[in-house]
Nucleic acid binder design. Structure first.
Length: 210
DNA sequence: GATTGGATCGCCT
DNA sequence: GGCGATCCAATCG
């Protein structure tokens, strides 16, 4: 059970009728642009009959082989192979032997870049998220890249699937209220940490850290 | 074949 | 805010 008084969207047919699926051209732009454009979009994950939805509130851009913090910096391996394909595909990887993180590939096909989804504001399927995360606290469901993967029921089998017609998709709401974007250095990396490639919605209460 | 380090989390103080 | 868990993937540090 969620803990505040807000109504969930669970009973509605999802996604909402006026939402627009983000198609491949959206992802085929430069990575920092896509990372910012994804803020305010809705991540929809279907795992069996269970649907979970979160609003993207925090992202990071990883620019490709010339970005030393990007997994593709040292060339193609089995792990990062998805990034070397076309834009609009899910790149899921294991970190610290324990956690998974979810990215979407971006930019031109020959450019192995991606956007890491770092935090979501829970929107629908809250009971599933709470169950998967083992906590009732809304602010602790999706406030980190590995947390949201767990809350949304994303497994490693999602790696390499299309975000246009696969199990995990992004939608935009044309009625989305405007917001301000904060830019900072990326979290948890040792190289190129000063580059302003982390983006989040100013004032949103569901980001991973200030 | 062995070693090293990591785009994190959660619990501790 | 500090640190241990925990283990895979890349590299041979």
């Amino acid at each position: 059970m969620h803990t505040d008084g807000k109504k969930t969207n669970l009973e509605l047919s999802l996604p909402l009728p006026h939402w627009e699926l983000l198609d491949y051209p959206f992802y085929e732009r430069d990575t920092a642009t896509v990372a910012q454009a994804l803020l305010g979009a809705f991540l929809v994950s279907t795992s069996g009959t269970e649907i979970t939805i979160g609003k993207v509130v925090e992202t990071e851009a990883y620019l490709g082989q010339h970005d030393p913090a990007c997994h593709s910096a040292c060339g193609m391996t089995r792990r990062n192979a998805v990034m070397f394909g076309p834009a609009g595909f899910a790149y899921v990887y294991l970190i610290y032997g324990i956690h998974y993180c979810f990215n979407v590939t971006t930019d031109k096909k020959e450019l192995p870049a991606a956007v890491l989804i770092r935090a979501l504001e829970p929107v629908a399927g809250l009971a599933f998220m709470q169950q998967r995360r083992g906590t009732p606290h809304l602010r602790n469901l999706c406030s980190g890249p590995a947390k949201l993967v767990q809350a949304m029921g994303i497994s490693y089998s999602v790696n390499g699937t299309s975000v246009v017609d696969g199990p995990v998709n992004f939608y935009r709401d044309p009625r989305q209220e405007p917001f301000h974007i904060k830019k900072t250095g990326r979290i948890g990396i040792s190289q190129a940490k000063e580059l302003p490639l982390r983006f989040y919605i100013t004032g949103n209460g569901y980001i991973s850290k200030k």
